[in-house]
Amino acid sequence: MNQRVLIVEDEPNIASALKFLLDHAGFDVVVEADGAQAVARVSESGADVVVLDVMLPNRSGFDILRDMRSGSHADTPVLMLTAKGQAQDRKTAEELGVTAFMTKPFSNAEVIKAVRELAAL
């Protein structure tokens, strides 16, 4: 059975490219664009890895990560994507318990490699 990846990303063209890449890499991929629904989707989808954007409508990626870590997803690997890439964002994500961090724009190979590594944890 394929491992499952939940992509939480509100930019449809980025989500679509990521979904295609990860599908192609052998994962079962689910996409969620709304920050407010993200934590529920982690549970529903039974995600093995979450690819999480920081800037989302309704709730930020940081809030989602905080809820995951304090709830039943304390150990689910999370790859955080941010368009800012500033030191403070990385620090905040690390404090909240992110597993890996990647700044946009990234290469397709980097994303696939990172998700494979997280799925193997």
Binding site: I14, F20, L21, P105, F106, V111
Partner: peptide, 29 residues
């Protein structure tokens, strides 16, 4: 604006790489 530009560039880069480097992509896709 910088956030928007980085998002645009990310989408373009990922999509263009898929088209340039991957084979057997369904026509609709």
């Amino acid at each position: 604006t910088v956030h928007g530009i980085l998002s645009n560039v990310t989408a373009i880069r990922s999509t263009a790489s898929i088209l340039a480097q991957m084979e057997a992509i369904p026509e609709a896709q």
